[in-house]
Design a protein around this nucleic acid. Sequence first.
DNA 1: GTCTATACGAAGATAGAC
DNA 2: GTCTATCTTCGTATAGAC
Lengths: 190, 190
Amino acid sequence: MTEKTREKMIGGAALLISQRGVQGTSFSEVLELTDTPRGSIYHHFPGGKDELVAEAIALLGSVVSERIRNTEADRPEQVAEAFSKGWREFVEATDLKSVCVMSAVTVGAGADSEELLPAVAGAFASWRDALADAYTRTGLGKSDGRRLALTSVAALEGAMIVARAEQSMEPFDAVQQDLVTLARAAGDRK
Amino acid sequence: MTEKTREKMIGGAALLISQRGVQGTSFSEVLELTDTPRGSIYHHFPGGKDELVAEAIALLGSVVSERIRNTEADRPEQVAEAFSKGWREFVEATDLKSVCVMSAVTVGAGADSEELLPAVAGAFASWRDALADAYTRTGLGKSDGRRLALTSVAALEGAMIVARAEQSMEPFDAVQQDLVTLARAAGDRK
DNA sequence: GTCTATACGAAGATAGAC
DNA sequence: GTCTATCTTCGTATAGAC
């Protein structure tokens, strides 16, 4: 079950990174959480920690953009609401102890491994493009769609951080409501 | 010049934290950047690294909330614009290599020192209250003002992260424009 | 208040056996 | 593929002299 071990490690790393940051996540913790053998790390990830983190980025990047693409919506505000809802569920499921993996990697990227930033940027871009698509499909103009997509991503990344710090969902509620307002207003202008 | 050394260390730590994260910032780097004597660290900060980080949080917390309180604005959108402008200048001045200290601490907080989170939460609260005040002073209702304040903080925290990852100011532009739109719309509803 | 030296622990990474 | 053992580096923190 080679793939199983590898996948488990990646998933576990993603979860830990979102809760403790990249530098706060050690191999030992990943092994313990995922119940995987220490001897396998450098077999599965010859590139070491950076490679593991890169896989976690890729995993979350594709999961989320897939999810965006599968969103069914007739109106722009439904796109905003669905996107926000996905993150909200994640944050609540982890007891307000998580931020987005992308934020965690971005923050820790200055120390070493600046090479991970492009991977994060790629994930952000894929989310933004998928969101922009969804917005324009529900009637927004191209430039409104792209701008709203960018704002949606940024605002929710930030909401997760503020919510984690304050241990409160209020920032989330505020952002979600305002994103819906923006989307609706943009839709009405058409 | 006791205070000088201490202040320099705090300022340098704040800058490094915003660029490399908390765990990515070592005493050695702070000392090198600020040209301060190694022997003074535990004299000035008997609580060790946590105390230094706590001081950086306090410093930035009060600087920013002070700045918000000194903003002159007649209309809500001017509040949003001024707040956004402050962060934009910071990000551009550091060559798109920084995120907010509060984000950096929040991300790294899960690993150890969960005790720093309340300090971050306090800073966020002070910004939010100062912003909410500014919004209501320009005519918004209490609940609109508070919600918009929360969204402003979250969206800009996120904008800094996405901008850092993508090495682009576009997320910033999008967030700023949308915040202004929201503020203006809220003002017009009155 | 500042110095040097050092204790102590943790983490990433490698080597070689099985 | 997985194991154990170990190397090396680095960071925080402490001790004690000046």
